[in-house]
Design a protein around this nucleic acid. Sequence first.
DNA 1: AATGAATGAGGGTTCATTCAT
DNA 2: GATGAATGAACCCTCATTCAT
Lengths: 193, 193, 193, 193
Amino acid sequence: MNGFERRRELKKQHILQAAMELFSELGIQKVSIADIARKAQVSQVTIYNYFESKHNLIHDVFIYYVDQASNQFEGIVHSDQPFPEKVKMIIFNKKQVSSNIHPEFYQYLMKEYTEEGNYIEKIYIEKALPYFIQLFDEGKKKGYVDQNLSNEAIIFYIQMLKDYVQREDVYEKILPLTEDITNIFFYGVMGKK
Amino acid sequence: MNGFERRRELKKQHILQAAMELFSELGIQKVSIADIARKAQVSQVTIYNYFESKHNLIHDVFIYYVDQASNQFEGIVHSDQPFPEKVKMIIFNKKQVSSNIHPEFYQYLMKEYTEEGNYIEKIYIEKALPYFIQLFDEGKKKGYVDQNLSNEAIIFYIQMLKDYVQREDVYEKILPLTEDITNIFFYGVMGKK
Amino acid sequence: MNGFERRRELKKQHILQAAMELFSELGIQKVSIADIARKAQVSQVTIYNYFESKHNLIHDVFIYYVDQASNQFEGIVHSDQPFPEKVKMIIFNKKQVSSNIHPEFYQYLMKEYTEEGNYIEKIYIEKALPYFIQLFDEGKKKGYVDQNLSNEAIIFYIQMLKDYVQREDVYEKILPLTEDITNIFFYGVMGKK
Amino acid sequence: MNGFERRRELKKQHILQAAMELFSELGIQKVSIADIARKAQVSQVTIYNYFESKHNLIHDVFIYYVDQASNQFEGIVHSDQPFPEKVKMIIFNKKQVSSNIHPEFYQYLMKEYTEEGNYIEKIYIEKALPYFIQLFDEGKKKGYVDQNLSNEAIIFYIQMLKDYVQREDVYEKILPLTEDITNIFFYGVMGKK
DNA sequence: AATGAATGAGGGTTCATTCAT
DNA sequence: GATGAATGAACCCTCATTCAT
């Protein structure tokens, strides 16, 4: 990658970052291209030169998102903390780019794309899923996780928790419940016996 | 309530119902007043006569929603099925008007209103919450639920599950996991011992 | 048609008239909805309320056009002037709404519509063509027109002439040639013998 | 002309050719500079370096066009076919670059330029007209054309026919009428006596 | 000389809301 | 009270053109 391409790539990421932040804060539909252009300090047309349409931009933001997420995720999975600590971090570490897809992205993309939908899902599975599985295989081996539970069900739970915890409207209310929520996750509403 | 008022009230509910259905199907932002007017077979202005603004309409749809939900909810709580069955019904019974707020409603209202937010929350707490608490008190008494867990945490979990299960994009993938998900809810990822 | 509908119809025609004039003067592509709205003294959205899209508007202008044209045309055909005079009028009477389609309309519609294209052509044939045929049957009977010539060929000639004569860029240059052009039409470049 | 200039001239013609083809296919307004740049495989700015504006480019395409046309035209006029055959070729030979201006060019230029208009017309007259006149003088001498007809009127007819025949939307419908149309051109609607 | 990047201006279209009847 | 008609503001997108390298 030469200097030209590198600069182009940087600017692209700059725009993607701006878009991602605005999308996260306000939702996709409320953010206009003009908003993104303003935040990224480029003209609207520049965005079109890079991404061709709002649709494509959203698509690329999604990939950017998954990419960043899986990197951070990998860090946690490969760290040498005890298993429960890893799980807690994944669920509650708000600053981290969420490793699972923000639901609005996913929903939007699935509704609008249909065909590309499969491709997007593929990307997601390839990038993010393996770390989930690796993590819970570890959990099962170490006795923290019931061996009979399907990975799908566990991942569903983690994703769900992560999504919710990261939503601005619930985050604050949940903080004091951290311990209880972790407990429910590990021991269920029935509790340890 | 005389005949006039009754008719007015009916028409209002008619509009609310139409709006609710469209919001549920397409999300709030994608539904225009014109769409609602078409579906409810009234003129746009009639909607304004009743609700004054789209904002207010959404507000009222929300209340309508919570109202319907809490009624159905009450039915389940007061029925004479065993506790775990009640929980399962609440989480997985898709046809039922969701007893917790559809997240987009909640998010939208919280972001837009701020001030009224508190009022809306109050409504929600008054209407829907008591049944939750009643239900889990029953669960705790009958030994299905750990007495040390806070109601807030349990309710958070239930809401979260219900939300996710009801989302079109995940519903189908989750169906085969029903058993596992219920198990995790009751016994955690660690499983029964 | 009650008062409401009549007024609506009038306004529609008002917009159509404005659009037609602008299209004739500047071509279709150069005329923006804003231009038409300004000329018709309505808001842009009003135009959308009536016609739904620029595309549809053009379509309707076309029909409006053909309609007006065939009326005027009928007048000439049924008048009691001698045959050559009628032909001359049709070709050279510029003020008359051209009875054949302005080529840009036709081309635009054919390119964009494809499917509706057939419908449009049908309209045209139903409305305008019969008068052409009637006229030239008269011409053949009275000995002004060679009986062996196909109506298609004659109509093609007339249309072509009319189109050209009405084009702003050639009109003035042609005026002094009126006599010659008429002669060629009747007697060919070879001339009367 | 040295090597530099020659190369420059070649590139210019390359661009002109690309532009001409696109204009012919899609009309002037629908073709963007970006389209032309893509087709000619140069950057947009290169086009501006050579032609300064889209306006100028159109102008130069026009001249390029007339130039090519008059060359082909000369070939026909100076060939040794019988006169009627030459005329037929000019009118119906679609592949040949039209020797008369494509109407959209002419109209566009006339409307936009006004001042330069005269210059363009001059170019056209200088290049293309003499061959027309030469051809019809031949026709008059050989008895195919009425001596009393003005050249202007004849040329008007030829141009008009050529234009129409070359339009995609009418070409196919006209093919079966070739004979009739040629007859009308030579003998008029009245027919040979 | 040639290019990739960038942009202001404008076009078609939609929407929540108001006006007039 | 209810409606059809009308609108200003905003949105996505395109284009001819210029800037910077």
